[in-house]
């Protein structure tokens, strides 16, 4: 048995395993628990409460400002409206300017600046009725906050920026090209999100500590795999009337293969592989539905077997990958 296994992180899973040992005492387990850092000290408590309360404060304040303008009261002069949002941007910027950027409150201030920038654009459009399309707002918003996003190294800000770009693309396709639900919109989103994911995973693979967190690439990965699967399934059902759906299906299959390869061999992350498994189950099920010409009774009977069978296979593959990864470390 390799000694390297002891270099694995001392996670809660290790505690759960040790608890299963015969003659394990509560004192020994408690001491492991404390030494591993699971028992928060006074410093951790203060830091946690400070972060929680600041995040809630920002959430409430920003929502309050948005509700304030949603009220759209006519008594307030247009300059007053602009000044309120401008003041909020200024206040948040001052806090960020006079703080170290790696501090949590500075990052939250930058997030507030980014959100208030959107409010300012919305209020401006509301007052002057510029006639711009909604996609203009989201695109300009994304462009204006790009600098803040780049300097912040704050994942929620990157998430906001990517959401804005995605929304702008969807609205552009709908409002300008009149193609709301179109495979090429899905493909455009696929390209944007894949580029973002590749950049993130490149730095993550090179062990850059700034790219250590996994929630952002997971969400992007889910979005890519899920959207391509939906478009591919639509293609199967409509018998690929639009060739764009065939491209989506190919991209979906490519995403599954890439997810399996990359997340089992390069960066260990079972979540994207698990999502791929669920999407493959959905895809196979759709193919069978189509092949059986939607014959109800047989679909229910065969479908049940297929779903359970594929679920067992998926679980087997995921456990195999998990084990293979563990023996590698």
């Amino acid at each position: 048995m390799p000694d390297e296994i002891l270099n694995e992180k001392f996670s809660l899973k290790v505690i759960y395993l040790l608890a299963k040992m015969d003659h394990m005492s509560e004192e020994v387990l408690s001491s492991f628990y404390s030494i591993a850092g699971f028992k928060p000290g006074i410093q951790s408590w203060i830091s946690f409460i400070s972060k929680l309360v600041l995040s809630l404060g920002l959430l409430f304040t920003v929502t309050g400002v948005i509700f304030f303008f949603a009220y759209n009261w006519s008594e307030l002069h247009k300059f007053a409206k602009l000044s309120i949002v401008g003041g909020a941007i200024l206040a948040s910027t001052i806090i960020a300017l006079f703080s170290e950027l790696n501090k949590f409150h500075a990052k939250l201030s930058l997030l507030a600046v980014a959100v208030f920038t959107g409010s300012l654009l919305a209020v401006f459009g509301q007052i002057y009725q510029t006639g711009a399309n909604a996609y203009d707002l989201f695109l300009n918003w994304a462009i204006l906050i790009t600098g803040i996003v780049l300097i912040s190294n704050f994942k929620p800000l990157w998430f906001l920026w990517l959401t804005l770009i995605n929304t702008a693309i969807i609205l552009f396709a709908g409002q300008i090209l009149w193609r709301w639900i179109d495979p090429f919109v899905f493909i455009s989103l696929f390209i944007v999100n894949t580029i973002a994911l590749i950049i993130y995973e490149y730095f993550s693979y090179r062990k850059n500590p700034k790219f250590d967190s996994r929630w952002l690439p997971r969400i992007i990965g889910f979005a890519i795999i899920f959207s391509m699967t939906v478009a591919g399934i639509v293609g199967i059902i409509t018998e690929f009337e639009d060739y764009g759906h065939a491209i989506c299906l190919l991209l979906a299959l490519g995403s599954y293969v890439t997810a399996f390869f990359f997340y089992s061999r390069k960066v260990y992350d079972l979540s994207s592989i698990a999502v791929s498994c669920v999407c493959i189950i959905a895809m196979v099920f759709t193919v069978i539905l189509k092949a059986r010409n939607f014959d109800t009774a047989s679909i229910f009977f065969i479908g049940g077997f297929i779903i359970v069978g594929l679920t067992i296979t998926s679980a087997f593959i995921l456990i195999k990958i998990n084990k293979a990864w563990k023996t590698q470390i």
């Binding site: 309360v53 600041l54 809630l56 404060g57 920002l58 959430l59 409430f60 304040t61 920003v62 929502t63 309050g64 400002v65 948005i66 509700f67 304030f68 949603a70 009220y71």
Partner: peptide
């Protein structure tokens, strides 16, 4: 909105 902002500032 005023309630939200006040709560936010308090937090």
């Amino acid at each position: 909105s005023l309630m939200l902002m006040l709560t936010g500032v308090l937090f």
